[in-house]
């Protein structure tokens, strides 16, 4: 037991190295993850953008936070996919019969998810810059944006972990992300919520994406963040804690 604990971080490092290699050898997954959000961004900015009234002069600035959330929501489905494949293959049994902390394997996947999502977020921000995205945010605000995005990624990654660990098929392991990708559409990510019918609007204004989007948008444009950021953080932490507990339970039951 002692030795297992003593080596937890080095073992997790080995696991992280392993799944990072998996990602680096399938760069197409990162490109696929970036492709749809970038295509959406182009579509909304150059096709619909002229008709959308957001009250800002730069629609790319308005749109970007929602696009980033969509990218993360589709990115984490690969985490579920990789976990599912791992569970099916013999290699995980080998790890589990070795004196290493079992959760080191899971944490390796989780950290890999964060790293790969950071890569796609950076790619998308670069494309947005080309399309005219500008931010007046200072270093501190950027750090806050990074913090929220990482927290959001972690929260969804643990949701993905539950799915990856309990899924019965590859389709099941990946399909769950579609509703997550859809969520930003019924939020203030693309259009302000005041134009929506009452019921939809009520949903839009009280679901996590809206507060997260508004908080990031405010940070990027140097506006006061108000209470949105606390609501956003509460959502992220809430989802994170609940899904972490369920994922750990599913994990313990599986192994």
């Amino acid at each position: 037991m002692e030795t297992v604990k003593k080596h937890f971080f080095s073992d997790m490092g080995v696991m992280l190295g392993r799944s990072m290699r998996h990602i680096m050898r399938s760069m197409d997954t990162i490109i696929t993850v970036c492709f749809t959000p970038i295509a959406m961004m182009l579509l909304f900015v150059y096709v619909f953008g002229g008709a959308i009234q957001t009250g800002t002069d730069n629609y790319v600035n308005y749109l970007l936070p929602g696009i980033l959330l969509i990218a993360i929501a589709s990115g984490i489905s690969y985490t579920a996919y990789r976990l599912f494949l791992d569970k099916q293959r013999g290699i995980i049994e080998r790890f589990h019969s070795m004196p290493i902390a079992r959760s080191a394997v899971l944490w390796g996947h989780v950290l890999t998810s964060v790293v790969s999502n950071v890569i796609s977020v950076v790619i998308i921000i670069l494309v947005a810059l080309i399309m005219g995205f500008r931010s007046s945010a200072d270093v501190l605000s950027w750090l806050a944006v990074v913090g929220i995005l990482v927290l959001f990624t972690l929260a969804l990654t643990w949701v993905a972990a539950i799915v990856g660990l309990t899924a019965k098929s590859v389709e099941g392991a990946t399909a769950f992300s579609y509703p997550l990708i859809f969520l930003p559409f019924i939020s203030s990510a693309f259009v302000p919520t005041d134009s929506m019918p009452t019921v939809v609007r009520a949903f839009a204004e009280n679901q996590p994406v809206t507060s997260i989007v508004e908080a990031i948008r405010a940070l990027l444009s140097k506006q006061p963040v108000g209470s949105e950021i606390w609501i956003a953080l509460a959502w992220c932490f809430g989802i994170l804690i609940v899904s972490y507990l369920f994922a750990m339970r599913a994990f313990k039951r599986k192994v």
């Binding site: 030795t3 392993r18 290699r21 013999g90 290699i91 080998r94 019969s97 070795m98």
Partner: peptide, 15 residues
Amino acid sequence: QSISLTGQFAAVDEI
């Protein structure tokens, strides 16, 4: 700590 397992199906990382 004291064993090693070679399962029925090859437990190698294919990637």
